[in-house]
Design a protein around this nucleic acid. Structure first.
Length: 615
RNA sequence: GCCCCCGUAGCUCAAUGGACAGAGCGACAGCCUUCUAAGCUGCAGGUUGUGGGUUCGAGUCCCGCCGGGGGCGCCA
């Protein structure tokens, strides 16, 4: 916002130091900790430390155990301060504790921030195109396991990240990779065929959850129990044999089994697509495990030919990659892993390698982000290391966003045992609670919109609770915490948006078409503390977008959205808008409210949370 | 045995190597005839697990230790 002024001052500092024999270290600029007015600052600690280091030791007095760096830094700051002179837009310059503080002229700063927001609107904060293509892979549940709260964390995290990288200036492709193959899928098919043939519950979620029920029941039947009678053992083994036979038939392309697989898979995908619709997630590219499986075998031969993989099949073994050895590492780090079973079937790793190749060659991605449970960290690191050995330079820009897993207070979730909290159940509960609060306190929500707004609030609360924790932290899921509507939550932020809207509505302003009056120095009055803080928060949005995207951390945006809403609530409480003492101030504050409303909406959008106008 | 992550207020979590370590929840005390109280204000709460090191400066970087979690050849 004040880059030009900062640049100008930096030039003055450099010129002064060059003329006076001060070897200036590179300057880092950062915001001054808030103390009633805002500005930017830089320090001279590094410069002073560098000076002290080159000074001969004999010049140091005995009692100077420590180098007098802070004093010298302050000295330089004071000297430099005297050379700045007056700069347009800058109210004053101060030298404090080794820092040079440059304070901005309040009215200029305020006007620039508000004008920029109102000129860019929904695009305020959008980064310049970076010329890089990013693919984010997320929302990759197993089919036939109904969508639970752990899948929800994965999907929400991936979607927020995709929105952030996109807005920050990366061309972004959203990819999903559902697991629609394997023993667990076959287990459900077997259960269905054996005990439930011909049945089909009505309703998308009902069908999805029913498949999970079958899976749980099947596992009970197939699991070895303690003290089972010989009859029970025989029964269990017979079931297992049937399941294996079904797997074999599937592999052989048996039409009946394939058809059953196709139909049930579609039920599961129907539910997944419905959940993604509820979460406003639009996947660009679907990679199905079943479609990657066969082609992935080809890469095994390629890796053997390249000398990356070792073929131990002639000795009755598998195809393996001795990753550490090939990389020339002496200590074990990536170890050795199998890329093709001895029976010639593929593994998770085989498919991930093939998929990565496709991402690079067909989709030309420069950065490939995998939103995958942190427990698969070794697997991902192995895959990236093999890609490097394979000769893909993009391997350097593969990033495993490993997030902590979601557990229940009573322990880990387990689809196999049916010990899961389903997303749909939490969603329903969220809406129920939001409706209940609405009927209590939302007199001005039109009847027709109550449910829609309850969805926005309830789902928003859930989404925010997932994003307000850093990636690598585990979440112990507590429904009361996740669906809290008070304090550091989505409804708190949404409420700020609603209050801003309420003021504008009362003022009768057409927000969408309103254009600010350029040249009219609206903020040329004594701004109140809470106005300044709000403007400060608004101005930080573009930087937060970049930080969140660069660090792959939606938390940065979640935190920011709260801070912004917090500044707005304080402003709302302390500063009258419609009752301002004069028309100029009222006009300025209305514009600030408009800008704040816009940026709250932008921030929420990046978090995949709706911004209602009333609640 | 080796690798990865974590340890900050009673609880849940923040803090690009920079100024006084901050929020929420919970507790306590106030604020609705005034733009929506899903809110605001005040108060309380800390030897950042521990011992060293690097640095002008360390919650942050490096090494050791303690405690917790996760992972390690034909599961995904």
């Amino acid at each position: 916002m004040f880059e030009q002024e900062q640049q100008l001052i930096e030039e003055k500092i450099k010129t002064y130091c060059a003329a006076n024999g001060i070897a200036l270290a590179p300057l880092k600029w950062m915001a001054i900790p808030f103390a009633g007015e805002w500005g930017t600052s830089t320090s001279f600690f590094q410069t002073a430390a560098d000076e002290a280091r080159v000074r001969p030791a004999v010049q140091l007095l005995d009692e100077q155990k420590k180098l007098p760096v802070p004093q010298r830094a302050q000295e330089i700051a004071e000297q430099v301060k005297g050379q700045i002179g007056s700069v347009a837009g800058v109210s004053r310059v101060d030298a404090v504790k080794g820092y040079l503080n440059v304070y901005f002229k309040t009215s200029d700063y305020a006007r620039r921030v508000v004008d920029e927001v109102l000129a860019s609107r929904a695009d305020f904060g959008r980064g310049v195109p970076k010329g890089e293509r990013v693919m984010v892979e997320y929302a990759q549940p197993n089919t036939l396991h109904s969508f639970h709260i752990g899948h929800a964390r994965n999907t929400i995290l991936g979607e927020a990240l995709a929105r952030l990288t996109e807005f920050a200036g990366f061309e972004t492709i959203r990819a999903s990779y559902p697991g629609d193959l394997g023993l667990s899928v076959i287990t459900v098919l077997w259960m269905y065929n054996k005990f439930y043939k011909g049945q089909e519950p009505q309703g998308v979620h009902e069908r999805g959850q029913w498949l999970l029920k079958l899976y749980v029941e099947a596992n009970v039947l197939l699991e070895k129990k303690e003290n089972e009678t010989p009859e029970q053992t025989a029964q269990r083994e017979a079931y297992d044999a049937e399941r294996r036979e079904m797997y074999r038939k599937y592999d052989a392309g048996d039409p009946e089994v394939r058809e059953l697989w196709r139909v049930t898979r579609e039920w599961a995908l129907d539910e997944l697509r419905e959940v993604l619709r509820m979460l406003d997630v639009k996947i660009d590219v679907w990679f199905f495990e079943s479609e990657v499986d066969e082609p992935s075998k080809a890469i095994v031969e390629e890796l053997i030919a390249k000398g990356v993989a070792d073929d131990e099949r002639p000795q009755g073994g598998a195809v393996i990659v001795k990753i550490d050895e090939k990389l020339g590492l002496t200590k074990e780090k990536y170890r050795t892993n199998v890329i093709l079973r001895s029976d010639g079937t593929t593994l998770y790793l085989t498919k991930d390698l093939a998929l990565a190749k496709e991402k690079f060659e067909k989709y030309h991605v420069d950065r490939s982000i995998y939103v995958v449970d942190v427990r698969q960290s070794l697997h991902m690191q192995q895959a990236f290391a093999i890609l490097k050995l394979w000769g893909f330079p993009q391997a350097e820009k593969c990033y495993h966003l490993g997030y902590g897993f979601v557990t229940l207070p009573e322990g880990a979730m387990s689809s196999r045992r049916g010990r899961v909290v389903l997303f749909k159940d939490v969603y329903d509960e969220a809406i129920k609670r939001a409706l209940s609060v609405e009927s209590e306190r939302s007199g001005n929500v039109p009847e027709a919109e109550r449910v829609k707004i309850a969805e926005q609030i309830g789902l928003g609360a859930l989404v925010y609770s997932m994003l307000a924790v850093d990636n690598n932290k585990d979440i112990v899921f507590d429904v009361n915490e996740a669906l809290s509507f008070d304090g550091r939550t989505a409804p708190y932020i949404q409420n700020a948006h609603v209050r801003a809207n309420s003021i504008l509505k009362k003022a009768g302003i057409q927000v969408d078409t309103y254009t600010s009056k350029q040249g009219n120095n609206l903020f040329d009055y004594e701004l109140e503390k809470h106005e300044i803080e709000l403007i400060e928060q608004v101005s930080q949005f573009p930087a937060k977008v970049q930080q969140a995207a660069n660090e792959y951390r939606p938390l940065v945006m979640a935190q920011y959205a709260y801070d912004l809403a917090n500044a707005f609530h304080s402003f709302y409480h302390a500063v009258p808008v419609l009752q301002s003492e004069d028309e100029n101030i009222k006009s300025a504050r209305l514009q600030l409210v408009m800008a704040a409303k816009q940026v709250i909406a932008n921030a929420l959008r990046l978090l995949d949370i709706q911004a209602p106008d009333v609640m």
